[in-house]
Design a protein around this nucleic acid. Structure first.
Lengths: 223, 223
DNA sequence: CACAAAATGTAACATAGGTTACAAATGCCA
DNA sequence: TGGCATTTGTAACCTATGTTACATTTTGTG
């Protein structure tokens, strides 16, 4: 296979390309293609294979009662999808997974992967680190969702998106709509909250350019 | 040590008591006591040891900006505390951990536990299952937090707390205040939502006895 | 049994955020 | 460069939930 990109996959960190190749051959790994917009996995489906994004990008999604999408996470190549659910007692996909681009996914059956873990100490340690870090991500997400006000979410987000710790300007890549979906709030509410924070002297907003004026005040909002 | 209770610990499932004892001795595991109300670990602290509740009960907590506590999870003996954070890249405790009763905690240093995983396949598989299931729990928690209305949270909670699938009566153990904290809402708001759901013919409430009258209607609320 | 403490029911009012609608600014492309 | 599509700003109004306060019921305890 031409899967050099997998050397950059956190699961195979520290392995030589030929080692990875050998492991994949041994495990009968299969590559499948998904066009942009296709569903790779649905919430509730049983998770029998380890899925690794070999090319392209997918997105984990949850749908609320109004049908509005709350984006949870983007997963670009070469990362594994939902590795933590491969060994869960109730091993169902927790979220819908959609291909954001034309995407290639590597499928490795669970028993074959278990063999891989037993054989290869490096992969084992990598896997532990990956699923543990994933728990950390989820835990942080809960902390974020638990912030009640839009302003506190914005403050948390802004402070985490500074290019450097002592910088104070942020150029936003996402549209307001995308950010609002990420926060799970309505777009006009996000705009209103930004304006109020500007009125309060916390930040200065020029379209996609946001300057943090009172970082301490922002920090106060996050707790 | 007199730690027979650990045979019931998900980490040591399938092992004989003397095997467990040998593993613990080898890993230089230490037992520490915490009085009721003591903090076992603080959010942000580095997670250098695997912690197992050997006796008593602890609670993972998060505090919101108003100082109100949002209960995340109770952990009774003989369960491990935050096992998923032992191997995370950013291995900090995600939440505060408080002893709910007089509690004994078993401490195993991370390197010693890694040795245990490498030596004992059963423990390895148990550990994978435990941290994977924990991810599932967190993921479900996110789904739950994402429900916007109090009624949808109540509906989800009620449907998940039926003693059997075809039962329709639930006797609540917790006080309204405890439940409200768990949902992250105010106590009177919870009471009001319950009354409204009663008015709508979804449930019938007699203090701690709740009868589900329209299960289908309740299911509709959760999506 | 009587009394205090805890839990629950409920009402009036305040507020954050959602909804809808539209205008203004910006970007893009022929 | 002109015109259309996208993004952003903003306002009016609505609704769910929080806040505060207090009455009522239940529970526990001497």
């Amino acid at each position: 296979m031409e899967l050099e990109i997998l050397t950059a996959c956190p699961l195979f960190k520290g392995l030589a390309p030929q080692e990875i190749d050998a492991l994949l051959q041994q495990s009968l790994a299969k590559l499948r293609s998904f066009p942009q917009g296709a569903m790779v996995a649905l919430r509730g489906e049983t998770c029998t294979h380890l899925l690794i994004v070999a090319q392209g990008k997918v997105q984990g999604q949850m749908i609320d009662e109004a049908g509005k999408m709350i984006v949870i996470e983007d997963i670009p190549a070469p990362r594994p999808i939902a590795p933590a659910f491969l060994y869960a007692e109730q091993n169902e996909f927790p979220v819908n997974v959609m291909a954001l681009e034309d995407t290639h996914i590597l499928f490795i059956a669970q028993p074959a992967f278990t063999d891989m873990l037993q054989q290869n100490k490096t992969v084992l340690q990598n896997f532990l680190r990956v699923i543990s870090s994933r728990s950390k991500f989820l835990s942080d997400k809960i902390m974020f969702l638990t912030f009640k006000t839009i302003k506190s979410k914005i403050a948390e987000w802004l402070l985490n998106h500074l290019p450097t710790a002592d910088a104070s300007m942020i150029h936003i890549q996402e549209t307001q709509q995308t950010l609002a979906d990420y926060f799970g709030v309505a777009r006009p509410s996000l705009a209103r909250a930004l304006k109020e924070m500007e009125d309060e002297g916390l930040i200065s907003v020029q379209r996609k350019q946001i300057t943090l004026i009172n970082k301490h005040g922002l920090k106060m909002l996050t707790r």
